[in-house]
Amino acid sequence: MLHWGYDEHNGPAHWKEVFPVANGDRQSPIDIKTEETKYDPSLRPLNPNYDPASAKIILNNGHSTSVEFDDTVNKSVLTGGPLSGTYRLRQIHFHWGSNDEAGSEHAVDGMKYAAELHVVHWNSEKYSSFVEAARQSDGLAVMAVFLQIGECNPQLNKITDRLDTIRIKGKRALFTNFDPSCLLPKSLDYWTYFGSLTVPPLLESVIWIVLREPISVCSEQSAFVRLTAMRMDLGLTFWFKIPASQRQDIVQLAKFRSLLSTAEDEVACCLLRNYRPPQPLKGREVRRN
């Protein structure tokens, strides 16, 4: 069976070999053509209400880095927008590229951003668990936030400062007292459409809420950072010779690129990119508030 990933031999072009739904009618991500979106006056403002105490762990699953939240009760929820009822926060994770030109999954009028944050929720009013909800057409709600190159984001440092502890696939660490609202832009205006998970099993169960305003992130600011990402054996040597006070100023996106998609007993391989290209719209409507 295909061990899916983002390399040439197991990347998105091959996922349909094991997951036929990859060719389905509501696959994600998409290229949002702004002139073709439809204004819908019935769409309400978004209302994220997150409890920092619900954050539990940060982990590297080999495909991305994610922060997991306690979703046993309605501590952290998303309501409003295109949603009917309450959607409970499950996790946040990131997608990025090997350079700053592309890394987001969604595109806007053909333009890709450097990275993309996904805030994943499930319909806790209708379903008893995330696993059950993920198989229903209205089971999940994912809020997407674009990251564009600019000033370093001090809120994002709360995550990137911990990435050294989970660099190897399978590693996890405690991660508490974190409110993902700190990573949202000032404006919560959005586009919305019906889509799917962007990673296998690609289930068509997601109500997508793509925020129109990006947040900033800083990228590599010295040549050695690119070496860290491309040559792990040399990069780590150079990295730890640099004072910790300087490392934070040098990287944000580069720290994501230095994560490993391999476990301790495997040859080290950096996760330089982890995004799926835009999929055909196939007649779906993209609405905006």
Rank of each mutant, 00 (worst) to 15 (best):
H9I: 08
H14W: 12
P20S: 02
V21S: 04
D25E: 14
P29I: 03
D31P: 06
D40I: 05
S42P: 00
P45S: 10
P45E: 11
N49L: 06
P52H: 13
A55F: 10
A55C: 05
I57E: 14
I58P: 08
S66Y: 10
V67N: 05
D71I: 04
D71R: 06
T72F: 10
V73Q: 15
T79F: 06
T79H: 06
S84K: 13
Y87K: 01
L89Y: 11
Q91P: 01
H93R: 05
S98Y: 10
N99G: 11
Y113N: 00
A114S: 10
A114W: 02
N123Q: 06
R135H: 13
M143D: 02
Q148P: 03
I149T: 12
G150P: 07
N153L: 02
Q155S: 14
L156V: 09
N157I: 05
N157H: 15
D161S: 13
L163Q: 03
I166K: 03
R172E: 15
R172Q: 15
F178D: 04
P180I: 08
P180D: 09
S181C: 13
S181P: 07
P185L: 04
P185G: 07
W191T: 11
F194V: 02
L197V: 03
P200K: 01
P201S: 03
P201Y: 00
E204W: 04
I207G: 02
W208S: 03
I209C: 04
V217A: 05
V217R: 00
R226C: 10
D233E: 14
L236N: 14
D249F: 14
I250Q: 03
R257G: 11
S258F: 10
L260I: 09
E266I: 03
E266N: 07
V267W: 11
V267L: 11
A268S: 12
R273K: 14
L281C: 00
